[in-house]
């Protein structure tokens, strides 16, 4: 029995690397038990990326067996529903800080709307977040969800988030197990971009792989919002890691490939910028 250990999973390159390595380690397994232990720390939103990897492993009719999960981690992953997919009972979230783990088909857009409304827009226990900011966060989350719907050819989309009230922060992650930026762009243009080059191309304004329909605006708008909000955006796709914030860009090539794409968004919730007034447009002068 080969035990895989996930240790201190946060939103860091080493954490994404661990998840990609977990997939690499077991991707050829068939009718096997995949034994996993989770230790130290596990950022709840990363359940999105872990759920995607585990689903890819179950495509080989493997069984996921959690041999050990530290009790604190187990509690948070039961509160956000992640572990209910693996035979654990649900735990009550008394602090209302979880944003549920959810697995959706790309065609489940209406369910996603309900999810966003319930988990984010109508959360009355989050009084610090301005209405304008909630709207901008929702837009951002939708842009990523719809990107996965349109481009990834994934079977499922995995979402999860977490509020950190003391840090005035929300983390929200959307993962798919589709073809990734690199394959999509290289297939479309017959080129040979690396995963990092492909991600960097896709986040530039007006770049799109769509044929006959315009696009390429969602990710650039998201980047601009992230800068104003002093938040963070991370994209992991294939072996590429890309991070963007008001402090600049970071990129990294991992030694293993993630089986799809992870987009992790970090929002500052004590941002009171007036997003509405800063960007007024005359509706009579749009066309």
């Amino acid at each position: 029995m080969e035990l895989s250990t996930l240790s201190s999973i946060r939103n860091t390159t080493t954490s994404y690397q661990q998840l990609a390595s977990l997939y690499k380690q077991h991707s050829d397994d068939l009718f096997d038990n995949v034994h996993i232990e989770i230790k130290g720390w596990f950022s709840a939103n990363m359940a999105s990326a872990l759920g995607a990897v585990l689903d890819k492993l179950t495509e080989g009719l493997n069984s996921i067996v959690f041999t050990h999960i530290d009790s604190g981690i187990q509690q948070i992953l039961r509160k956000n529903d992640f572990l209910t997919y693996y035979g654990y009972s649900r735990a009550v979230d008394n602090h209302s800080t979880t944003i549920r783990y959810m697995k959706l088909k790309p065609t489940d857009g209406k369910f996603f709307s309900q999810y966003v409304t319930t988990e984010l827009l109508n959360r009355s226990e989050l009084p610090k977040i301005s209405a304008a900011l909630k709207e901008k966060m929702t837009e951002a989350i939708y842009e990523i969800f719809v990107n996965a719907q349109i481009h990834s050819k994934t079977s499922y989309i995995y979402t999860c988030g977490q509020f950190y009230p003391s840090k005035n922060r929300i983390e929200f992650t959307i993962t798919d197990t589709g073809i990734g930026f690199k394959t999509k762009i290289n297939e479309r243009f017959g080129k040979n971009l690396s995963a990092v080059q492909a991600i960097k191309w896709a986040v530039q304004d007006r770049n799109t792989t769509k044929i006959g329909v315009t696009g390429g605006i969602g990710l650039p708008i998201l980047r601009e919002f992230i800068v104003r909000n002093k938040g963070l955006m991370q994209i992991v796709s294939d072996d590429g890691f890309y991070e963007y914030s008001h402090l600049g860009e970071k990129e990294y090539t991992m030694s293993a490939k993630f089986p799809g794409t992870v987009v992790n968004l970090q929002f500052c919730t004590d941002d009171h910028a007036s997003y509405l007034l800063a960007s007024e447009v005359n509706v009579n002068n749009i066309f």
Partner: peptide
Amino acid sequence: ITNPGAVALKRVVDT
């Protein structure tokens, strides 16, 4: 149209 919606639409049109 909401103000953020108008901003997004203007950008879509320009693109």
